[in-house]
Design a protein around this nucleic acid. Structure first.
Ligand SMILES: [Mn+2]
Ligand SMILES: [Mn+2]
Ligand SMILES: [Mn+2]
Ligand SMILES: [Mn+2]
Lengths: 219, 219
DNA sequence: ATATTTTGTTAGATTATTCTAACAAATTTG
DNA sequence: CAAATTTGTTAGAATAATCTAACAAAATAT
């Protein structure tokens, strides 16, 4: 069994590879808040267990085994987040830190029961896909709001930033998953967009915000 | 913050003190499945943190601080067990191992939410009291079934053994918390008792079993 | 193509948790 | 009580996870 520490390295490697295409030692060290020598030595440890491939001065690559292990931890994380929101009444901005701990619990039945009680959800409270029991992740082909054009209508389906701060910002604007947006206009000088949704007739969203909102456009 | 390891030592010391009046190094080592030198050295570590008192060759004594810390971990354990049974549909024989892990999660809101959702239960699924937020434990003055005499009626209120094996035995006999027993007779040669409950007209319970069933006698 | 900066490696040390071996104190037995 | 057994201690070592300091390779900038 991988230790909690090893599990956190696997998850970090998995996320870095998905977001940046590859994972360097310095990225990994930064992500986990450890020194480069620490990351370097842990990568060697993971390699000995067949969880990643590593050659000096080259990016770290998870093996299939490593990817599956990481995906199964992410599965536990996301099921937990969904359970906390749907069954325990937490806000979407409160659940990440708790899930960060619960994801390391070794008790298959515990997570299977959560899954069952929720009716086998496919995404977490932030719209990220929940890997299946085999560690496979379905591709959600979403666009960011900044790619939409005036006149289009879209629904918020996920976020590319799920930090508590961004979630608090969305709460304050009554924006959530499922919110339907009408794109009214886009400023060419700062890429900000004016949209309508719910009770709001005209709300301005900065480029940063638009990039972080992942949408499905209505046909 | 105490590490998971330290938390497990605190819990073991707390339980040994409650069950046996005191906690020796060898008891502690046995309870936790570690060697005596390991237990000895951890006790010194806990002492440095003001969690217990220890003098060479004498029993280990938790300080008030240590007792409170232990009780709060036990609170998380028992709330978790109750939540797993009442809200997630687990059997009382399945929850201990999961709670053994969940009790180490640092997330006050998580446990407060469980508590709220269950309506602030005072005992766990095995009838053991749940310490309050201050770490205080209410005394339930229960007797063991072996102290009862023929003619009396009683209700099963708790267990002095909550091992999965004993729980499975109770399941197989349709015995659970709340089961009302009529004591029919007691054999003087082996202390076994014959009782009636539910659909059962005459069931024989060995002395071992009777000692493990904690009851409240009807007046 | 150098020089500078960034990134990565090695070596050596530290802390936490554990072990075994050897010995010593305390307790139990005859 | 003396012998035997159990319990507890010390010393020394191992593993996991981390650090800093020093150096080396790779990437970037002039
Ligand atoms: Mn999360
Ligand atoms: Mn984690
Ligand atoms: Mn338990
Ligand atoms: Mn535990």
């Amino acid at each position: 069994m991988a230790s909690i520490t090893e599990e956190n390295y696997l998850k970090a490697l998995f996320n870095l590879s998905n977001n940046q295409g590859e994972a360097s030692i310095s990225d990994l060290a930064n992500q986990l808040g450890v020194s480069m020598p620490t990351a370097n030595s842990m990568v060697k440890t993971l390699q000995k267990q067949g969880l990643c491939k590593y050659e000096k001065y080259k990016p770290v690559i998870l093996t299939e085994q490593g990817k599956k292990a990481a995906a199964l931890i992410i599965r536990k994380h996301r099921l937990t987040e969904m359970f906390l929101v749907n069954k325990m009444g937490f806000g979407w901005e409160e659940v990440h830190e708790i899930a960060e701990q619960v994801e390391h619990i070794h008790a298959p039945k515990f997570f299977e029961r959560m899954d069952e009680m929720m009716g086998f959800p496919t995404v977490d409270p932030h719209g990220s896909p929940i890997p299946d029991k085999q560690g496979r992740i379905q591709e959600l082909h979403l666009k960011s709001l900044s790619e939409a054009v005036p006149g289009q209508e879209a629904v918020i389906a996920a976020l590319s930033d799920s930090s508590a701060e961004f979630l608090a910002y969305l709460n304050s604007r009554q924006l959530s998953l499922g919110t339907e947006l009408k794109i009214l206009s886009k400023e060419s000088f700062d890429q900000s967009m004016t949209v309508a949704y719910g009770e709001k007739e005209r709300e301005s969203l900065s480029q940063k915000v638009c990039e972080k909102l992942l949408i499905r456009i209505f046909d």
